[in-house]
């Protein structure tokens, strides 16, 4: 008798625990706040500004999701995660979505039970060295000491790169970008390796960026994108299509400035569908009609977000490259909204 009560309670707990993971959308709505796993501090992508508010390329996607789901782009709580803690934070339900320069890999998608819903930045791993070393290629780094962030794909790529080129190195394994940068700046390592976008961002935050060069070799594919837990497909759809709405907006020329007027002037049915003037696409994933409009209005379309945070006019100065729209020779391509 006692035992059956015990197992009954156990089953109830399990059911409760199970349901906590199933309806992320309901949880976010009930909470009135989106919890977004962000970087501890990577200038341009996700870092607190002088007032302590999070800003950046990845952060703007968090804001777009919050605007789509909750109707208010400011209702986001950012949880800083390191390379080591990010996946545990997502798997345990501490964050609703992880948008933190995370590389889409096979084992993370399958074994870790996550879903990478899109690629918001196509990246590759590079090296940064001090100019005074006189190194012009990563293949000249034989015997060098290399600073590397632990818990990242770059750690494994680095080992593979040096092995395949038959040269040696000494790894210095550090916890996050800022510590790696401190060690690199102090000369504790000759080279710093991470995603090329991260290198550009780190270089911009050094005292004298001109003294450092990013080597031409890109040694890996690093598709970075937002991650959600496996199994909650509706929530995954919301994150995925919010991102695609930003891409589609750029393709259709919808900007933060013209979003209120473009609806009335346009004859393009896809734009009308996207802005919720025709049909009811939001309802198909549990949102209202104007979800995409709010998402775009939050920080602008994909191109605007790129240019404000990491584009050529910023100190980070990244070119669109692979991240240009497919119509301009890049890889960014949104499936049709219909």
């Amino acid at each position: 008798m006692k035992k059956s009560v015990f197992f009954g309670a156990l089953a109830a707990t399990t059911v409760l625990a199970g349901s906590a993971f199933a309806g992320t959308l309901d949880d976010v709505k009930a909470r009135g706040e989106l919890i977004c796993g962000a970087n501890v501090g990577l200038t341009g992508f996700g870092a607190p500004d002088a007032t302590g508010a999070y800003v950046g390329f990845d952060v703007d996607l968090c804001k777009a999701i919050a605007a789509a789901v909750l109707g208010d782009a400011s209702k986001v709580k950012y949880v800083p995660t390191t390379g080591e803690t990010r996946f545990t934070a997502l798997a345990s339900g501490e964050v609703d979505v992880l948008i933190r320069n995370s590389t889409w890999t096979f084992s993370r998608d399958t074994d870790l039970k996550f879903d990478f819903v899109a690629v918001n930045y196509y990246d590759g791993q590079g090296f940064m060295v001090k100019k005074e070393l006189g190194v012009s290629s990563a293949k000249e780094l034989d015997g060098a000491t290399v600073c590397i962030q632990t818990g990242t794909t770059t750690e494994l790529n680095l080992a593979d790169f040096f092995k395949s080129n038959n040269i040696s190195y000494t790894p210095v394994t550090v916890g996050d970008d800022s510590e790696a940068l401190r060690q690199y700046d102090a000369g504790a390592c000759d080279a710093y390796t991470t995603d090329a976008s991260g290198l550009a961002a780190s270089r911009a935050s050094l005292a004298n960026p001109a003294d450092h060069i990013i080597l031409p070799e890109i040694i890996s594919k690093e598709p970075l994108g937002p991650v959600v837990r496996h199994g909650d497909n509706n929530w995954g759809d919301i994150v995925r299509w919010t991102y695609y709405a930003l891409l589609e907006a750029e393709e259709k020329g919808i900007t933060k400035a013209n979003i209120d007027t473009v609806g009335t002037s346009t004859t393009d049915p896809e734009v009308k569908r996207l802005l919720g003037l025709e049909g009811d696409m939001g309802a198909m994933m549990g949102l209202d009609k104007e979800w995409a409009k709010r998402a775009i209005a939050a920080s602008g379309n994909y191109g605007e977000i790129f240019e404000t945070n990491i584009g050529t006019s910023t100190p980070i100065g990244l070119a669109r490259g692979l991240n240009a729209l497919w119509t301009q020779g890049g890889l960014q391509y949104a499936p049709p909204f219909r």
Binding site: G83, G151, E155
Partner: peptide, 18 residues
């Protein structure tokens, strides 16, 4: 960044295998 048991098994291995 001293790679002891915490650094290898509890750090990098844990992260890379999940």
């Amino acid at each position: 960044s001293y790679l002891d048991l915490r650094g290898t098994l509890g750090g990098i291995t844990l992260n890379q295998t999940g």
